[in-house]
Design a protein around this nucleic acid. Structure first.
Lengths: 235, 235
DNA sequence: ATTCGCAGGATTGTATATAATATTGTGTTC
DNA sequence: GAACACAATATTATATACAATCCTGCGAAT
């Protein structure tokens, strides 16, 4: 057989290309290397990945479903810019879902799970030590996802994953510079409660942790016109 | 060619045509005109709607993201067949989200909202009287969606909408014929509680309503191989 | 000088063509 | 007659071509 295609010849069956595009963009968004509002041109991306616009579109539409990017008809795809209202809703939803999930996780966690969580915290520390803010932020989110995975509720875990993804955008937009992001302590305490199988404590710790996060955001109402001005400022 | 309907000029989010395809298929699934496991061939659909496979694919991917259809690589798209486990998870998630949402709805509902809900119930009755099971089922789901809309939490409402969509598939697969589906009473009581602004009661009613629904399903574990046999039976 | 209009260019939306892959049917061999 | 190999067929995955739409910039008119 003749191989003409210039695409990566190593993984022809393992992963679907559109997923790779979406995963790559998603990672960049999570690590704040792509700012909210950034234009994601189809031609540009298709050249970067060496694939056709068809698969790029599929990837972008996938991200649009997760509300990580916004697709405007005949205008293109942009990294999403959650509104104040959306930001509040996302954290309210997390405060509803995650404490209960942490509780389930505490009741179900195996020693293996604990090891994984502890490793996560170590990785977070390493990222912080390396001053890699982006990586630290992503790992912090993954920690929450890992807990929901332990809780063994795939459906709810999916919701939480979507909420955490959007949280990354919200943090990029509304984080108050004054407040320091030291999640390590909260995460460590959570792991301890989970390791001890103390569901009630895990639930409470998760809730206060989320409230802390929420209050570290500046979600005060600004003038309504800031929405359109913001676009200009971001570019 | 025939123009079916004009586009909504206020929501230019994604491609309009693909949305119509997805909405049409979604409706058919909700009304049980498309059984779980049904093959959704791209060529077939593209001919039915008079559009190219490109937009059909976009629509199918959208539905796949909502887990209403399952896309198997190089095999095609099929109406999803939620597993027993998924079925349980969906209803557990609903039991977690919807009671709280009903509470919020009771506290926020306007007289207009009450009117809308009452009209919904009337429509449900009409559908039942007309022996239109499919329509009745869809309206019943929409009733829940309407409540979440009143609660004014778009994000959570989106989750609930996805859960209800999957519930339709679950009912198609696991409904016990013995138990009658008389949701009218429960819905009526709910509207009363909401009309009176009694959040606590609405929350409790919603919870017991969901428990009733859940228990009307046959979610006992059958042989594992039934999964593959089922495909044969459905075609 | 400002505003309106229009053309040019750029980008997305859709359709079609080509490549890759799975399924099915047939024929040969044991 | 059964089982395997292989070809024929059907369907999906990707790429490319074409059409529609939007944005930008220039120029003319007021």
């Amino acid at each position: 057989m003749i191989k003409l295609s210039q695409t990566d010849p190593r993984s022809p069956k393992t992963t679907v290309t559109a997923d790779k595009v979406a995963a790559s963009l998603s990672l960049a968004i999570h690590e704040h290397r792509l700012a909210p509002g950034t234009k994601l041109g189809e031609d540009e991306i298709s050249e970067l990945f060496g694939v056709s616009r068809t698969v790029v579109r599929a990837g972008l539409q996938s991200l649009a479903h997760q509300q990580l990017v916004e697709i405007q008809r005949n205008r293109g795809a942009f990294v999403a810019q959650p509104s104040l209202r959306e930001a509040r809703e996302v954290f309210e939803a997390r405060e509803l879902l995650e404490p209960r999930t942490a509780r389930s996780a505490a009741l179900r966690a195996t020693p293996q799970d604990i090891t994984i969580l502890e490793q996560h915290i170590k990785d977070e520390h390493a990222a912080i030590a390396a001053a890699d803010q982006g990586r630290a932020l992503r790992l912090s989110g993954q920690f929450h996802i890992e807990i929901s995975r332990i809780a063994d509720q795939t459906t709810i875990a999916g919701f939480i994953e979507a909420l955490i993804a959007r949280s990354s955008l919200i943090i990029a937009l509304y984080w108050r510079r004054e407040s320091a992001l030291c999640e390590s302590f909260a995460h460590h305490a959570l792991v301890e409660a989970i390791a001890q199988g103390d569901g009630q404590k895990a639930q409470e710790l998760m809730h206060s942790h989320l409230v802390d996060l929420h209050s570290a955001l500046d979600l005060r109402d600004r003038t309504a016109q800031s929405r359109s001005l913001k676009d200009a400022l971001r570019l």
